Simulated scan of single mutants.
Amino acid sequence: MLERYELEAFLTLAEELHFGRTAERLRLSTARVSQTIAKLERRIGVPLFHRTSRRVELSPVGRQLYEETRPAWDRISEAFARAVDAGRGLTGSLRVAFDGPAAGQLLVGVTQAFRARHPDCDVQIREARLPEVLPWLRGGEVDIALTCHPMREDGIVMGPVLVREARMLAVPTGHPFAHRATVSLEDLARVPVLQLPETLPDSLRDDRAPRRTPAGRPIALGPSAMTFTEMLTLVGAGEGVAAVGAHARRYFARPDVTYVPFVDAPPVEWGLVWLAEGATARVRAFGKAALDVAQGPAPAPSP
């Protein structure tokens, strides 16, 4: 029979594929994690991971064990969290992160609605850059985050889409595209596109193959940027273009950058994300408040 600490070590290592990060998440030493996995492998009789000096990867048996135990562990964790919340009620604190000023404005309204319903639960709001959202969730720094969808990661739950906005192309003000009423996805083959994968349409975000337009034309990648402001600075400097949400035109107006609407790109979607194992009553109640705020008041009945 598996002990709880053994299963936690195995599942976490299967997600991280790194002993150091696994130890950090579990607040254990790396040696303790290694010993636990080795003990588990001796009991099963086959390796669960293949280890080299450069990487750790699941063995076929390890992958099968992960796929069969992860859903059950999530259900157990959620049931336990619900039991704890039922005993405590909606009290304590909820730590919420947001990515960008538009998300922050929406989050203020959601927080006000949540506090009105659950005055005994304190909400703590933190701003995160997009690359920080997932590490903060996995590291327990925040309980839930309002960010751009999709976030396709093991163990991450995406709530309903709260807001959809048009997708636009940020171009240097002196670029020929800046004088056009619209652009298309095919136009991306004519200019370098800055490397912020989360801002590109899904059809252009396959990292397993060169990015191409819907018609199959290759897209040249421009420089990388670590922050949204840095990306727009590079755009203004003529280093490339970037696909962004329409909110950028309001919150990031710049004399050196022009925003041109796409005619054929899917919208940018925003919503809440949280850890599957962290789906507490507080998280679920906050998600409900967010959906209610996004949908607005119900229409009055006809006389």
Score class of each variant (00 low, 15 high):
82 R>Q: 09
69 T>S: 05
100 G>T: 00
72 A>F: 11
100 G>Q: 08
67 E>T: 07
96 V>W: 06
104 G>C: 03
99 D>C: 00
74 D>P: 01
76 I>E: 13
91 T>E: 14
93 S>A: 06
81 A>F: 10
90 L>K: 00
74 D>V: 11
74 D>A: 07
95 R>M: 01
111 T>S: 09
87 G>R: 11
107 L>W: 11
87 G>K: 13
89 G>N: 07
77 S>Q: 14
77 S>I: 04
76 I>S: 02
100 G>M: 10
84 V>Q: 14
95 R>F: 12
76 I>G: 05
80 F>C: 04
71 P>A: 05
71 P>T: 11
94 L>E: 07
96 V>G: 05
114 F>C: 02
75 R>N: 04
103 A>C: 10
67 E>W: 05
89 G>I: 08
115 R>Y: 00
90 L>C: 02
92 G>F: 08
99 D>S: 12
101 P>A: 14
94 L>G: 09
84 V>T: 14
83 A>I: 01
103 A>Y: 06
70 R>T: 06
108 V>P: 01
110 V>K: 09
82 R>I: 11
106 L>T: 10
98 F>P: 15
102 A>V: 01
105 Q>V: 00
89 G>V: 10
94 L>T: 04
110 V>L: 09
79 A>L: 07
73 W>R: 14
75 R>K: 07
93 S>Y: 11
